[in-house]
Design a protein around this nucleic acid. Structure first.
Lengths: 143, 143
DNA sequence: TATTGTTATACTCTATAACTATA
DNA sequence: TATAGTTATAGAGTATAACAATA
């Protein structure tokens, strides 16, 4: 291959481009750190929400996480197939179901929290604790 | 719907989650701002790289942007179909092609740069010029 | 042999419309 | 009539394997 130093031009200074590259790195590092529990980012988020809000209903989770309800169905089916989550009959509204973690789900959730700390530590290694807090504050301010 | 304040628990403090939400907002705002030129983020990046590096070859673009060469083919086909980019015969290596912007491509590239400034201004509105620089530096340090 | 561009393919994520059963 | 969950489907984005032409 002919040697050439590719010029990025204005791309280097774009927040959108930097966000995209950071997000790609983030997901790759997350998947590596969470391999043991085999939870995709959205699955992990859902377990956290059910743990924090026992009996929460699918619509509430979708609204909180910005998911389409249609896409939530197979995700929840998979968590139920793995016996991490149960759908209890909705009372009094029988259209909706109340979601709870099973004992296995609670255990995996706890382990996932531990593993996720390793991921956050990667960020601290690169940015320092202060840099991590700054980044978090800026990202939250953005959205 | 039953009223309930969903508790996010530790999710609120995760850099990975904040990055994901920021990226979703970023892409939505980008698409809105760039509607006139109808360029996806990757297409825009490719136009910038060709403009900055006339005669650049597909493999170099893929390496610079982290794209799979197989996925670059249809992307480039579309840019050529829109008469924004031309593939010139590779010299001396006839396996590869030298990419250049057409006059139409240069014009659209210029317009896209202008529109993209509106996007960056959104970030400045939310974070201030200093905040934007801080965010950019932190994201680049992360990757 | 190795590399460039290409084709084919598959998997994930996301988005929309329409259906059912309940309210 | 409106809503919760579901089904089906389609579009992006991303990944790997294999091939032809060329080095």
């Amino acid at each position: 291959m002919q040697e050439r130093t590719v010029r990025f031009g204005p791309l280097s200074g774009y927040v959108g481009y930097a966000l995209r590259r950071a997000q790609l790195w983030s997901v790759a590092a997350y998947l590596s750190a969470m391999k043991e529990v085999d939870l995709r980012p959205t699955q992990f988020s859902v377990l956290i929400l059910i743990n924090e809000n026992p009996g929460i209903r699918p619509t509430e989770i979708c609204a909180a996480l910005g998911l389409q309800k249609a896409n939530f169905v197979p995700l929840l089916n998979e968590l139920e197939r793995r016996a991490l989550v149960v759908r209890h009959a909705g009372v009094p509204d029988r259209r909706s179901s109340a979601l709870h973690l099973t004992p296995e789900g609670k255990a995996l959730h706890e382990r996932a929290l531990q593993l996720h700390e390793n991921w956050e530590n990667l960020v601290v290694e690169r940015l320092g604790a202060d840099g991590r807090e700054q980044l978090l504050a800026l990202l939250q301010k953005l959205t």
